[in-house]
Write a protein that binds this DNA or RNA. Structure first.
Lengths: 358, 358
DNA sequence: AGTTTTGATGTAATCGATTACATTTTTTAG
DNA sequence: CTAAAAAATGTAATCGATTACATCAAAACT
């Protein structure tokens, strides 16, 4: 094996030199030397202090402080194959619910000394895949996926590299993977039924997605149709309006619809942002809510109660999702076997924006 | 140096064994073997592909795909002392502006292949310090601090371990560190003056903080006082109400104030959340806005225009802060010398919630 | 053809921790 | 007081990349 064709002497000289010159952060060796113990003892002081004699421990700790020693996580990770790090992939932080979920997630895993690494996918499946690859290189111990029904490529990649993951926000019943969330379809069905119960029959459905349609959008459409068929009403594609996820877009869409003579008695929106846009259009047109038209949202933003017409909406358990996803992943990481499906529930918040026609 | 007191043979046996058993991810060695090149060549293919002959490169790339090789970032970081990772410390994600700033920041640094590591400090200086220590261990190349006027301990820690950082949101003029943000004091002064210009003289100031007062809160108080003295009005501590950062708290506070017979003509709020709470209280009391009382917010939430009384507010350049902080840090990391202070500006958004008394 | 230059590839030390096992020290038991 | 057991500490291989330098190959000059 050993080959003699290289002359190593020169390199050594150079290396020694640079060692003298470069100002580096102190290493475990420096601490060991100062405290007059071996590196093993220092390492133990840091990770399993109960294994080292109190007086030695004190000496080591003093050296750590004196040198301002900070452990090199890269070296530790390399040796232990554990980074104490969890990746979070989210479509956007601009959706308040996602931000809340992440915050709750971070808090949950931080309690077990895990750090969150953030990736924003912008609803782009390719970017999402790339983020996952990046996170894998960073050595994350697990990954949390929020609010997207992820690409199969992504899931199979995670399987291949053995990174445990949790899907969150909504869920799929028929999956072998771990999900934490609510039943999107049922929740939309519920709020739609609520509108029907109030006697509305001429309703339209605004759903975000146009640009980045995904399974979630699809589930929402289905929830709407479920309610329609529950009430034996007639469904037509024309009742569904796909709108980009922002209030301006839904505002314009409602104007367009209204100007074409489409005059529903109620507008059901698949999220609060769209509802806000509709509300703006109503104000401009001069429609009173709910007297002239009923409007519902979905997400449960606090703010919905403070609009010029308080809007009935469905509160999504964002914080819970974050916590439960965190717990689920923590269990996965300690080989406990968490439930495959953690179902959480939405709550209808009546704002009074649905007029009773009966 | 070499000591003979250890018998190494047993250990080797054990190690070889475990190697056979353990299912590991493929390493650069495996790729090298399969492609029939040295590890050096594989490494070059991955980081400087132009240095390797196309045919070899193709062979290596094929091996990478075949084995499903994922580079071990920990090993790379250990050797290169670069993690391509940036820490972000934020008090909370529940404040929409912070989330926007982080998102913009992430996008900016991601373009240069940096990944963001998130830490939520909950307005707690100790937790913040601990987060910084954690991030240092993780080996972040830089740190972005949002929305807090950070502890001196934090800053000196970062100096000691040589981690470049950017402070953001508001700024301090007299600092040798890097700041990206707006002039908090001046912005509050501006919106307060706006209210005075409309003839109001009997105003109160709601400022968030009570629980976690910091320099930022202090600057806002000062901005308010600046405007007062500009208009030669008389200042009293009783004009300032410190309220926890949530709408419920400010709602209650306004009720309390009103019931005590304090009847200002305008309420200036240091953030939109507080303004929303005040608005709720007004509605409950039966006060019309702005006819009976004027209210202003601060932050520029889109939603302020859709409340039952559209609120005048000051838009904060959150996205810009994220982008510019990102650029600043990127420059810092490449030894370019960015400006110490990047001043951004707020924009007054007139919602009509300030009645003209003249 | 021989020499120099340029380009591509290989060798193996190195980064800074952890940890199995060896060794030494201390405690406990007899 | 000694032997055995338990506790504390030390040694040095190891994790998986990178990269300085050496070497070899091919192209560009004389």
């Amino acid at each position: 094996m050993q080959s003699d064709k290289y002359d190593k002497s020169k390199r050594f000289d150079k290396l020694k030199e640079s060692k003298k010159i470069a100002r580096k952060r102190p290493t475990i060796n420096d601490v060991a030397q100062l405290a007059n113990v071996s590196t093993a003892t220092v390492s133990r002081c840091l990770s399993k202090p109960e294994l080292v004699r109190p007086d030695v421990r004190t000496r080591v700790e003093a050296s750590v402080v004196e040198l301002g020693y900070v452990l090199d996580g890269a070296a530790k990770t390399l040796k232990t194959h554990q980074s104490k790090t969890i990746g979070v992939i989210v479509p956007t932080l601009e959706i308040g619910g996602y931000a809340s979920a992440i915050q709750a997630f971070e808090k949950t895993v931080a309690a077990e000394k895990y750090t969150a690494i953030l990736g924003v996918s912008d609803f782009d499946a390719d970017k999402e895949l790339q983020l996952a690859h990046n996170l894998a290189e960073k050595g994350v111990d697990g990954i949390m996926l929020i609010g997207m029904d992820s690409d199969d490529r992504l899931i199979s990649f995670l399987e291949k590299v053995h990174i445990p993951h949790v899907n969150s926000w909504h869920f799929r019943r028929d999956s072998k993977y771990h999900w934490v969330g609510f039943d999107n379809r049922a929740a939309i069905q519920a709020i739609t039924s609520y509108v029907f119960q109030h006697g509305h029959r001429d309703v339209v459905f605004f759903v975000g997605g146009a640009e980045h349609a995904n399974a979630r959008t699809e589930l929402r459409r289905q929830g709407f149709m479920d309610a329609i068929s529950d009430y034996n009403l007639e469904f037509s594609e024309g009742l569904i309006f796909e709108v980009p996820y922002n209030s301006k877009a839904s505002q314009l869409e409602f104007h367009r619809l209204w100007s074409l003579g489409n005059r529903p008695t109620a507008v059901i929106c698949a999220n609060d942002i769209l509802a806000i846009g509709v509300l703006r259009a109503c104000k401009q047109i001069g429609l009173r809510v709910p007297d002239d038209i009923s409007v519902t949202g979905f997400d449960g933003l606090d703010i919905m109660a403070d609009l010029w017409a308080p809007i009935t909406t469905m509160a999504v358990p964002a914080k819970q999702i974050g916590e439960e996803s965190g717990n689920c992943l923590l269990n996965l990481l300690t080989d406990k076997n968490p439930k495959t499906l953690t179902e959480l529930h939405c709550t209808l918040i009546e704002g009074g924006s649905v007029k009773s026609l009966i």
